[in-house]
């Protein structure tokens, strides 16, 4: 049965990592997501753009079930996420937040090693090795004994990315990762994300950084008013948007 599903999902020889079907999310009477359909292929970097309040963040938060949704389905590797243990699901999906959310009472190193040790039961020395490795990759291994408050915003966000990567996630979700940063610190975080995309990580990025969308995204998804209004390759969507709402949004933001 699962093989069959996999075959169905195969498009251009690429496996579908995440499939979202008719997703509906309401906060009380307010319908934030009104039937989202989206497929994310393995190794694909998707950038989600759209006006504030359009449901972009809510969509990300539904994927790892930080928000419960009312209707529709989300599949991770063909399995309905509601059928997975929620903690197992979250361990397989990394998330980076706008406000970093590093644990302020722990050193950078402990921020990274806590979840692998407690959730995946990885031996401590192994976790530390891995953490040093990832911190080297994001250029912060010299900060491993520092506390979050001693870091700049850009450094904090790079630590947060490394922390999420410690769990070897199959997908990484970025919820406006540079929106809380001083302009001069945005670049270092985007560079880290770009490297990650180039390494083949499957990513869904909510951002207002159009330069990043143009250079890094395999596909841009424009979400407005709770639905996917338009999607396509960056050059198509950014240079030649089809829908009036996309045109209007891009005119205002570019």
């Amino acid at each position: 049965m699962m093989d069959l599903l996999h075959n169905e999902d195969n498009q251009n020889g690429k496996e579908i990592t995440i499939k979202i079907e008719n997703l509906v999310k309401r906060f009380g009477n307010l319908e934030v997501l009104k039937g989202i359909n989206l497929e994310v292929k393995k190794n694909e970097a998707i950038v989600v753009i759209g006006p504030s309040g359009g449901g972009k963040s809510t969509l990300l938060r539904c994927i790892n079930r930080l928000e419960e949704y009312q209707d529709g389905h989300i599949y991770l590797e063909s399995i309905d996420v509601e059928k997975l243990d929620v903690n197992t699901l979250r361990a397989r999906i990394g998330m980076v937040f706008q406000l970093f959310n590093l644990f302020p009472h722990m050193t950078v190193l402990k921020n990274l090693t806590l979840a692998p040790i407690k959730v995946k039961k990885i031996p401590e020395n192994e976790a530390i090795e891995k953490a040093k490795n990832l911190l080297t990759q994001v250029g912060l291994v010299d900060k491993m004994d520092a506390y979050p408050e001693q870091l700049s915003g850009g450094q904090k966000q790079r630590v947060a990315i490394a922390r999420a990567l410690m769990m070897d996630p199959e997908v990484m979700l970025f919820d406006e990762p540079t929106s809380a940063l001083d302009p001069e610190l945005v670049g270092e975080v985007l560079d880290t994300m770009k490297k990650l995309a180039e390494s083949g990580m499957t990513m869904i990025v909510v951002t207002h950084e159009m330069g990043f969308a143009r250079d890094v995204a395999d596909r841009i998804v424009f979400i407005n008013n709770g639905i996917v209004e338009e999607e396509g390759k960056p050059e198509e969507v950014l240079k030649n948007p089809q829908k009036p709402r996309t045109k209007e949004f891009l005119r205002r933001i570019l």
Binding site: L66, N87, G94, N101, M167
Partner: peptide, 13 residues
């Protein structure tokens, strides 16, 4: 802050 709880849960704790 709620973000602390969410960040921790998002790691699978």
């Amino acid at each position: 802050p709620k973000g602390q709880y969410e960040a921790s849960r998002s790691l699978g704790l």
